[in-house]
């Protein structure tokens, strides 16, 4: 890609995004990422099992603050991510086009849909509890209500094909309710995810709320599925044949497991959000 005359381009190093920082893999490994037509695009960090565990530590550390933030605040932070993406639409469209082999118009549509999806979920932050919660008319002198709470640290194996819209479609429903996330990006198409992480870092998302790993899904997924400090896992991006093993590993601490194939949905629903909330019911006597 060297250019014989004129300006030499400044190439980007594609790094991990863990705890708000951009480390290389602690293993020192990287792998070559190619465009859909086979042209080499970049070297991406090849995350190790240790990187995955570090990402869980970062996500756990960020959980108390993010889950405890007001829903209004979380909504604004997610909306701010959409703002950050909006300004990078051209870059993202180019990367999505190369990664997925899309024509420019189709790549732009995917990016626009990603931004719009974030806006859609951002608006849910302060409405989820009203829709998923309840006031329960029990047969006795008690005030009784139910509220959704975040499940905790959730691992998201992002869809392999849809590099950006797929990623946003599985990540936003997890973090909007106050969960923190460890994302394993599309293995062969990680560049848009790296740019997404760079956009997150320039927005208001607290460090550790979203952590993005690039590398081999087959290497990272079992470690995360069996990790005792992970509370839930969306295995949508895992190969179909790997699901049974991941679900079995997830039994170690009874992680909530989601495996849906319809990603990215043309019209998102609350189904993914429901999968990673816990309904808490509180009773109190009523009396004088």
């Amino acid at each position: 890609m060297s250019e014989p005359t004129g300006r030499a381009e400044v190439r980007r190093t594609c790094k991990l995004f863990v705890g708000g920082a951009f480390p290389r893999s602690e293993s020192g490994r990287s792998y070559v990422v190619s465009a859909a037509d086979g042209t080499p695009l970049a070297n991406a960090a090849l995350a190790s099992r240790k990187d995955a565990r570090d990402a869980v530590v970062a996500a756990r550390g960020a959980l108390f603050g993010w889950a405890g933030a007001t829903a209004y605040n979380r909504g604004q932070v997610l909306y701010r991510v959409a703002e950050m993406l909006e300004g990078r639409r051209a870059q993202l469209a180019a990367e999505v086009g190369l990664a997925e082999g899309l024509r420019p118009a189709a790549a732009r549509r995917a990016v626009d849909a990603s931004v719009d999806r974030l806006v859609w979920y951002a608006g849910w932050a302060d409405k989820v509890a009203q829709v998923l919660g309840a006031s329960n008319p029990v047969a006795g002198p008690y005030f009784n209500f139910s509220v959704p709470e975040p499940t905790g640290v959730v691992v998201v194996l992002a869809p392999q094909k849809s590099s950006l819209l797929g990623l946003v479609s599985v990540l936003a429903p997890v973090v909007v309710t106050g969960n923190t996330a460890v994302v394993v990006a599309s293995e062969d198409r990680p560049v848009p995810a790296v740019s997404f992480a760079e956009a997150l870092a320039t927005g208001d998302v607290p460090a550790g709320v979203v952590n993005v790993l690039t590398g081999r899904t087959a290497e990272l997924a079992p470690v995360l599925a069996g990790h005792m400090d992970v509370d839930g896992i969306d295995i949508t991006g895992a190969p179909y044949r790997a699901r049974e093993e991941l679900e079995r590993l997830a039994a170690a601490n009874l992680k909530r497991v989601l495996a849906l194939d319809d990603v990215p949905e043309t019209q998102p629903t609350l189904r993914r959000t429901r999968a990673f909330v816990e309904i808490k019911t509180v009773w109190h006597p009523v009396g004088t």
């Binding site: 329960n136 008690y142 009784n144 009874l254 808490k280 019911t281 509180v282 009773w283 006597p285």
Partner: peptide
């Protein structure tokens, strides 16, 4: 999943019941 405040072990069909974690 259930928090009883100033009461304990109350159950009702209208009241969701179930756990966190393990």
């Amino acid at each position: 999943g259930v928090v009883w405040a100033n009461t304990y072990n109350r159950f009702d069909p209208a009241s969701p019941f179930g756990g966190y974690q393990e």
